[in-house]
């Protein structure tokens, strides 16, 4: 290699590094800009009271307590339905079937499902759960619809996490007298939990921020829900209505800030928990 090509290589290296750095900075800048905008326009109203007060005058005044509760119940219920189903499917696809046309079809189906716009899921949920199964506009209808929506994400991420568990660890399990289900339960799933949790958190964020699905299936009631069969309003829907109906742009921004803040907090907490458990 001549000194000239060496120089050239170095120059290209540096250029590549700087290009990637620039792109990363641009991505971070977008996040910071959104947060800064929300803090600027909604930060002053974000007090403890905002979370603990009932909304007044369609949401122009007061807080979001019933909406906060509805959002959390909706999210927890949706994940309670989607997570076991998703992990179960992923385990079946990775551990119990040989790769063939069945798995290809199932995987293709899941992938297609992931690409469907959420408003279609909303419509589907409205027809199936709200009308056909007679669940009405309710948290249950919403949770079931949201579960359908995030199921592909959970299946996909869980599948990847399970596939990443080294085959030899399964053999270690077998060599210690474990049955197949014991190997899955005691070795594969604990080993894959980091990836599985990541997928669940991703799903949680999507569920909490989802609007179209929820407005079609859960409705827009601002009352405090007393049962899963009550209609309710999620924070994302609340934000949409406040902004879209021209009720209060300020309250809309504050709601958005609260929602984004909560999702960031949940993601951070999950990351810390996963990191702590595995480095103990």
């Amino acid at each position: 290699m001549t000194p000239e090509t060496r120089q050239d290589n170095l120059r290209w290296n540096r250029l590549g590094q700087r290009l990637c750095l620039g792109m990363t900075m641009a991505v971070v800048a977008v996040l910071v800009a959104i947060l800064a905008y929300l803090v600027w326009h909604g930060g002053d109203r974000l007090t403890i009271g905002f979370f603990l007060d009932f909304p007044k005058d369609l949401g122009r005044e007061g807080g979001i307590l019933p909406i906060l509760v509805s959002t959390m119940v909706l999210a927890v219920l949706a994940l309670a339905i989607a997570v076991p189903l998703g992990i179960g499917t992923a385990v079946y696809l990775t551990e119990y079937t040989r790769e063939g046309w069945v798995t290809t079809v199932i995987r293709f189906g899941a992938e297609c499902l992931a690409g469907i716009p959420s408003i279609i899921f909303g419509l589907f949920g409205f027809i199936l759960f709200v009308v056909h199964l007679g669940l009405g506009w309710s948290i249950l209808s919403g949770a079931l619809t949201l579960a359908c929506m995030v199921l592909p994400t959970i299946i996909r991420t869980s599948e990847e996490a399970i596939k990443a568990v080294p085959a030899v660890l399964r053999q270690v399990g077998f060599s210690l007298g474990a049955t197949k289900s014991q190997v899955i339960w005691h070795i594969v799933l604990p080993q894959a939990r980091r990836g599985i949790i990541t997928g669940v958190i991703l799903a949680l964020g999507r569920v909490m921020g989802e609007t179209a699905c929820v407005i079609f299936t859960t409705g827009i009631s601002m009352e405090m829900p007393t049962s899963p069969l009550d209609s309710a309003r999620s924070m994302a829907v609340h934000f949409y209505l406040l902004a879209r109906e021209g009720i209060s742009m300020e309250m809309a921004n504050t709601t958005a800030l609260a929602l984004v803040g909560m999702i960031l907090l949940i993601n951070t907490a999950a990351a810390v928990l996963v990191a702590r458990r595995s480095s103990r």
């Binding site: 080294p166 030899v168 660890l169 053999q171 270690v172 077998f174 060599s175 210690l176 007298g177 474990a178 014991q182 005691h186 070795i187 604990p190 080993q191 595995s278």
Partner: peptide, 29 residues
């Protein structure tokens, strides 16, 4: 497999505590 133990070529630790690694087989049994 409980009566015939097996030791693999590369060191393999289960993602558990040292004690729980050792007692994995007996606990399953």
């Amino acid at each position: 497999r409980r009566e015939v133990g097996f030791c693999f070529d590369k060191p393999q630790a289960l993602d558990l505590s040292i004690a729980d690694n050792v007692t994995f087989g007996p606990r399953l049994a």
